[in-house]
């Protein structure tokens, strides 16, 4: 029996009375590479934000390896949507990646050579080392996404939450990113990805959660990624032709 990395019970989130997530129960086993899929407004990003305590749920609880998120922060890394920040902010690629070390540093302490070395290694991993001193607005969308990924890698977490890491990136970057995610899984990490491109789900992921305000289904891709669940989630007669 594998361990449960993330356990969610009765989670309900609402923006101004309208429920965005309704009574979600979800168990994410350790070591999976999981896609969260669902239509726009299904609450995919909200689910991640509620797990990470960015949004306050009106009911329900989340535990990370059996304890509350607040106690397990160091085990978790987050890659927000690329569009959530202002890329014209006056800072460099290396500086953004260094922010990944701020959590373990805590208040007031500044990054030292040790943190800088870790940040450079993360940049190397995502193939962005030559751009380390580049002002972040001068990076392409794909490069910015890699910087965000490097920032999460530097946290050296056990569980990674990523909000649409493939949005607006070219094919090369997409392949580079998915290879890194697969490597993370190989190293025993749990990776949870909000994903939009249904065609690539079977190729990229081994676990999937269908979400549309309520949880529709969750499990191994090979068992539950089928027309039935897709239709239930997207509301229209959905046909994906998956050639095995």
């Amino acid at each position: 029996m594998t361990k449960i990395a993330v356990q969610i019970d009765d989670l309900t989130v609402a923006y101004n009375y309208k429920p965005v997530l309704w009574d979600i129960d979800l168990e994410i086993p350790e070591g999976v590479l999981m896609a969260i899929v669902g239509p726009n407004g299904a609450g995919k990003s909200t689910l991640i934000k509620a797990i990470l305590g960015i949004l306050k749920p009106i009911a329900g609880s989340v535990s990370i390896y059996g304890k509350s998120y607040k106690k397990q922060r160091s085990l978790v890394a987050y890659v927000p949507q690329k569009g959530s920040v202002d890329w014209d902010f006056p800072t460099t690629a290396l500086d953004v990646v260094l922010m990944g070390t701020y959590g373990s540093l805590g208040w007031i302490k500044r990054p030292t050579q040790k943190e800088k070395k870790a940040a450079l290694e993360a940049l190397e991993k995502v193939g962005m080392l030559p751009f380390k001193n580049r002002q972040i607005s001068q990076l392409s969308g794909g490069q910015q996404q890699r910087i965000f990924l490097a920032r999460a890698l530097v946290q050296d977490a056990s569980i990674y939450f990523m909000d649409e890491p493939f949005q607006g990136v070219d094919a090369t970057t997409e392949i580079a990113i998915i290879n890194i995610l697969k490597e993370l899984r190989k190293a025993g990490k749990t990776v949870i990805v909000v994903h939009h491109d249904l065609q690539t789900v079977p190729e990229y992921f081994d676990w999937v959660t269908f979400l549309n305000v309520k949880k529709i289904a969750t499990g191994p891709v090979k068992d539950i990624f089928n027309d039935d669940n897709l239709t239930k989630t997207y509301g229209i007669n959905y046909k994906v032709s998956i050639q095995e």
């Binding site: 305590g53 960015i54 927000p80 800072t91 922010m99 701020y102 959590g103 208040w107 920032r151």
Partner: peptide, 22 residues
Amino acid sequence: LLFWKEFKILLFDKDYAKTLGF
């Protein structure tokens, strides 16, 4: 100077700063 790092991360990415425990 004391909270330089904290100010910087708040300005750039508030949600992320929150997940780091600030």
